[in-house]
């Protein structure tokens, strides 16, 4: 049935409804969603104390990590766990979230938790979400477009200042101008607005809106000094600094990057800089995904939906497993960029 998957959270904005068991219709044939009592899409009950005989990995990210489009057991986080018998992977993925919300989820829900490794998997595109105080979403049951308020950070003399918390409840009308709109540039704002309206009125034109979206793809990675990157860098740096265990930073590229339609060099450069700066290990999965995509063209993503298929998740898992295994064995003492090919 069409269920509301999310509940309001005053700090993170939302999380999954605790204990929810649902199924979502999808172009890939539909997928099963199981959530734990903490409100995350995981088959594990999240415990603060260590689990005897298990090393624990916490994974954070957006819908690519949460696994939109595939059932729980077929996500890269679950596949990593299946391939590393001594390891348990807690999936904190939150669809449609920015890095800001993912960091807040870590602070709110994993602060007292034991873990042996943090696996941060921001979608490259998330950089823009950090600049927004509301996200355009398809409302749970009606499917109508709505703006959902979210928390965000401002930078004040280089420090993060949390805004919009407690997050306002309810939806905002889609036509509401967003407070941060000027920050993301008028051309991209217009492109996004056009895309939203086109998607709302003509769902079949998604291909066209994706093309249009390409015009609006992040320019924030082009320089280390853009507001978008400054914000993302600061969030991730603070997160890594707070971590009580090794951190792997594994940015998930968009399929436009994988298909080679847009340049990946800027984002790769920024994350490499961040890795050097923070000491977090960087696992760059782009080349590996490109190689797999070349072998099996079109198999890694759904035809319309931009999320990874079961094969896509398997590919990501395959690329991450050796690095996670090495990290858990203590092999991250000399962090450096690791190309996952």
């Amino acid at each position: 049935m069409s269920r509301n998957l999310f509940q309001y959270d005053p700090v993170i904005g939302y999380r999954f409804v605790p204990g929810l068991k649902g199924r979502v219709r999808h172009e890939g044939g539909g997928y099963l969603v199981r959530c734990n009592n903490a409100g995350f899409r995981s088959d594990h009950v999240f415990r603060d104390a260590p689990t005897p005989g298990k090393r624990r990995v916490l994974v954070f990210g957006d819908s690519n990590t949460a696994g939109d489009g595939v059932s729980n057991g077929k996500r890269f986080s679950d596949l990593i766990e299946a391939q590393l018998p001594d390891c348990e992977v807690y999936n904190f993925g939150l669809p449609s979230s920015g890095t800001d919300q993912q960091y807040l989820a870590f602070r709110e829900c994993a602060g007292a938790m034991h873990y042996d490794l943090l696996l941060l998997c921001p979608m490259v595109d998330n950089i823009r979400r950090n600049l927004q105080d509301a996200r355009l979403i398809h409302s749970g049951l009606s499917g109508e477009l709505a703006l959902l308020p979210k928390p965000y950070f401002d930078l004040a003399q280089g420090a993060l200042v949390l805004r919009n918390v407690p997050v306002p409840k309810g939806h905002l009308p889609v036509d509401n101008a967003q407070a941060d709109e000027p920050q993301i540039g008028s051309v991209r704002a217009l492109a996004r607005q056009a895309m939203s309206h086109a998607n709302a009125r003509f769902p079949g034109l998604r291909g066209w809106t994706q093309w249009l979206r390409r015009l609006a793809l992040p320019a924030e990675y082009n320089s280390p000094n853009t507001l978008g990157w400054q914000l993302m860098r600061t969030i991730l740096a603070q997160w890594i600094a707070e971590a009580r265990a090794p951190v792997i930073l594994a940015p998930i590229p968009t399929f436009e990057h994988i298909d080679g339609n847009i340049r990946a060099a800027p984002y790769r450069a920024r994350f490499a800089e961040l890795s050097r700066e923070t000491g977090a290990a960087l696992v760059d999965v782009l080349d590996g995904l490109r190689a797999q995509n070349a072998t099996r063209p079109g198999s890694l993503r759904f035809p319309t939906d931009e999320h990874p298929t079961v094969a896509g998740h398997a590919a990501i898992a395959e690329l991450l497993v050796p690095h996670v295994a090495r990290a858990l064995e203590g092999g991250l003492s000399n962090p450096m960029q690791m190309s996952a090919e």
């Binding site: 509301n4 999310f6 509940q7 309001y8 409804v17 204990g19 929810l20 409840k169 309810g170």
Partner: peptide, 9 residues
Amino acid sequence: EEIAAYLDF
């Protein structure tokens, strides 16, 4: 939990 989420929101 679903009901609480709806009512709370």
